[in-house]
Nucleic acid binder design. Sequence first.
DNA 1: ATTTGTTGTGTAAACGCTTTCATAACAGGG
DNA 2: CCCTGTTATGAAAGCGTTTACACAACAAAT
Lengths: 320, 320
Amino acid sequence: MASIDDVARLAGVSIATVSRVLNNRGYVSEKTKLKVWKAVRELGYKPQKSARTLASRRLFKVALVISDRIKKLLKNETGNFYAIVLQAIKDVESSFRFSTAPLILESSDPKGFDGFLLIGSDATAEQVMFYRKYGKVVLVDHYIDGLGIDCVVSDGYDGVYKVVQDFVQRGFENIVHLHGPLRFYGFKDRYRGYTEAMQRNGLLPVCYEYDDLHEEITPVLKKIFRDKKVQVLICSNDIIAIRALKELKSWGYRIPEDVSVIGFDDIPQAERESLSTLRVQKYEMGLIAAERLYELLIGHGHHPYRMCLYTDFVKRSSSL
Amino acid sequence: MASIDDVARLAGVSIATVSRVLNNRGYVSEKTKLKVWKAVRELGYKPQKSARTLASRRLFKVALVISDRIKKLLKNETGNFYAIVLQAIKDVESSFRFSTAPLILESSDPKGFDGFLLIGSDATAEQVMFYRKYGKVVLVDHYIDGLGIDCVVSDGYDGVYKVVQDFVQRGFENIVHLHGPLRFYGFKDRYRGYTEAMQRNGLLPVCYEYDDLHEEITPVLKKIFRDKKVQVLICSNDIIAIRALKELKSWGYRIPEDVSVIGFDDIPQAERESLSTLRVQKYEMGLIAAERLYELLIGHGHHPYRMCLYTDFVKRSSSL
DNA sequence: ATTTGTTGTGTAAACGCTTTCATAACAGGG
DNA sequence: CCCTGTTATGAAAGCGTTTACACAACAAAT
């Protein structure tokens, strides 16, 4: 494929000039610009991204935007999810020539940054578009309908789908889903994976909503287990699953013989409680988001996308 | 950030040796390997992808796998969608050092290829896993539940969602969805975007299924327009939309005054018929898929993902 | 007429890797 | 003891860009 040298030769200029034309930087006469673009078109030249990345010595200022809620979470273990994401970004920041700085959602000044990584599902559409005015934006573990903003999330649909599929294939039929508020994208996504998989297997989805931030789990759980037989309880996340696990044990249920409990995320507690769960690639998530932001910043195009990272099922002793 | 030089210095070897250790290639003594890995860990060294890509001179053989159906489509205009995707791959093949060759799904020998780009939604799970045995696989415009295979698709959910949202905000309420068979991922995805958006606006989703390959459109359309008032008809793709458009016109309906018709894909006919539609970034799709396959081939990890490219609404005169 | 600033262009040095080639040490076979 | 093959390592040449720096031409200001 044509390289910058070929273009330079054909246009009768130096590669430095070609580079300047392509990047619209520095002084170039109109006449030269035309010559270069002509050569580019003629050769069908496409700059090679890796070479660009390598050679570009720009330093970007990027803000790691977290909400107050997440900031608090980061101090205790529950926030470990985001801690890993942030660690990943820290790890690669210099490789992308990022100088990162933390920012608290909506209470800090976004001026002076080239880009923003919005971490977690607290930002509203308005807030996202606010940051967008100041620079490039990538949502991490968050998605908002119809905005067209790049984001990196876990593929809850696919994850839960395959868990259900697996249990059904092993003969289980009484599979129940206990989900968080469906206004959150993540919960909705997993919910869809569950219902879809059940329906495709000719089973009736049985779902219960539970707001893990404002409710006791006992009432919902009582209702679930009074209503009908439950062999498998798939929960929206590990927090909910662990609460359910403890409660069920206190009722005298044997886990997993009487009921299998499944979580989502794979936070550290999950391992300690021997909870089977869908592992979200948190580190990868941060890494990819950083990569994407870099692309946007160095930014020769690309269409925005939503990237869903597949999850891995981690079997521990809370499930058969 | 630490570079290969730093590692070499700390380990007391040359960068060539470090590279050999990292890539597990060529002769290196066990003792040296240990020293190098120790240095790598100590510095938290991560090889820089762009440098690797640039320096790696390997030539990959990749197969462009299409079904018989698509092969036929490519000859007439309907196949333009895939023609563009394939063009994109052709355009960048040498930039990724790919030597590509066409392959017909399930009727050609997959031996001797490093990777496979499976184009379009015809491949079954079994077929995908079959190719997977021979090399890396990326699905283009296709996704299969629970397989964990990388794929690049259009974000039908998001696209249809934002169209509905837009019409609702402008006061429309009688929005109907005419969709293709829901066993196809793409149709299902768009269907979900529609129902979700309707429900979130407190409206009742009204859907009709129509198999564009085996049915006449007249009966469904008659049913739709007999049942109730229709202001907006959102179709699963441009083919369906154009058929509907023609039929409605022949009935004497004024488009878009009486009813707005929306398609999906933005195939060439859409422009000629003045059909409003959601444009899929076909070129981008091919490009990203090629990029991804390259990553897998040069392959130092990464977790598999499903990438959904946002669509753009293209307003033409078939809609208000 | 000299200085200073603006505009346009080229040369060459990075960027951080991979890979080819050269070299050396050492084994075993004749 | 020489030859050959195997194992282990390093030096250095790229890969395709960007960019710092040098230089030249010319205009405007002194």
